[in-house]
Design a protein around this nucleic acid. Structure first.
Lengths: 219, 219
DNA sequence: ACCTGAACACCGTTCAAGT
DNA sequence: ACCTGAACACCGTTCAAGT
């Protein structure tokens, strides 16, 4: 797990390593940025670094560990979320919005997280701020815990799904075909609303606000 | 897309096909049930059917098309959801609960859908019933469309995330490590509630009910 | 219409060996 | 400590050829 951390400078000494663990991770991240998670292979990575494949294994263990480490890195590089607004509900909603923004600003994160089944980690950035704001809203103990988790799921779940609406044309076609197959009888405006792609921003805000107001109201 | 549909009986005639498209799909589904999506390879599938790999290609095109077809099949085999309860909110919540149950009852569906990025299709089963019940609750047109989609996202998103909490021990460990890293100062009950795995059933119901009541209330 | 074998272009991973 | 080449056990897919 924790081999070879050192060598902060290239230092062309004779016995110097040809690559460092950090260099491996940097290049891996670049490959992911350039061609997604499926563009990242151990062999390409080695080639890119001018080194034998097996050398990669010495530095990072294996591919799964590599990807996990990339996820960790991206997560660590995310800043803290600050709530904005005056009412408790507004502040909590603002945390959700900021959290979604932070994640969408790192589009490769979703692919990485997805490949390793680490979706739940997307709930993390919002966590601290949510705990704080729900406490400020007067929720405590088990009820606060439930509220925080409900919002976390809402945020992360939405993000995992929404790219089926945006981008990803190939699969979007299949999804749209399925989703719009039904003609909603008697309410053409409803049918239109369901079949046209909803604006994800609006949909997200409506859903989050609805949930949050319910959670806060009963105090 | 639609080659070879015929031959409903084995019929050991001389020129009879050695496998049918349906047989390929059946066996593929069995492999998925036995060892998940990553246990499904074209070569294993062919071996299982006693036929050359290339023959599979004739019947189903390629692996992606195969998986898509399996998703279609499972989706088609799901029954219709009927709402239960007396108040509009209760009825809508019951649809969400039933939808989640139907999907969780088909655990391989999630893997299939995930591999192909067809997550959004999990929103489908609840759709018809949601449209009906929101109409009965007095929502129409664009507002109803938004409400339906908000609940659909809530349901499908939750399902995609929750298995990070249940099962999947390997990755669960990594996730839990991350999620519980923070000690919540001053509210031990909160900390406990956040760090112990929440009961997904309860969490789901709380979240859905909160959202639904907000959506219905403003009529 | 249905199936075959051969071949291509990839993968991740292990291992014994080098310096 | 760091890197190598060889080898293993897989993949999905295409193609020309058979019946």
């Amino acid at each position: 797990m924790e081999q070879s951390r050192a060598t902060s400078k290239p230092a062309a000494a004779p016995g110097a390593p040809r690559v460092t663990r950090d260099a491996v991770l940097d290049t891996a991240m670049r490959l992911v940025r350039e061609s997604g998670t499926e563009g990242l292979s151990m062999r390409k990575l080695a080639a890119e670094l001018g080194v034998a494949v097996t050398s990669i294994y010495w530095h990072v263990g294996n591919r799964d560990a590599l990807v996990d480490e990339l996820v960790d890195r991206v997560l660590r590089d995310m800043g803290t979320i600050r709530a904005a607004g005056s009412t408790p509900a507004d502040r909590i909603v603002s945390v959700a919005l900021a959290s979604r923004r932070m994640i969408l600003d790192r589009p490769h994160l979703i692919g990485l997280v997805r490949e390793r089944g680490l979706d739940a980690l997307l709930m993390l950035p919002a966590r601290r701020a949510l705990v704080r704001e729900f406490a400020a809203a007067g929720l405590h103990g088990a009820r606060a815990a439930l509220a925080v988790q409900a919002v976390q799921f809402q945020v992360a779940g939405f993000i995992m799904l929404e790219r089926a609406l945006t981008g990803h044309e190939q699969e979007q076609a299949a999804v749209q075909a399925w989703l719009s197959e039904v003609a909603e009888g008697g309410d053409p405006e409803l049918a239109a609303g369901l079949n046209v792609n909803a604006d994800p921003d609006e949909l997200f805000e409506v859903a989050v606000r609805g949930l949050v107001e319910s959670l806060v109201r009963e105090v």
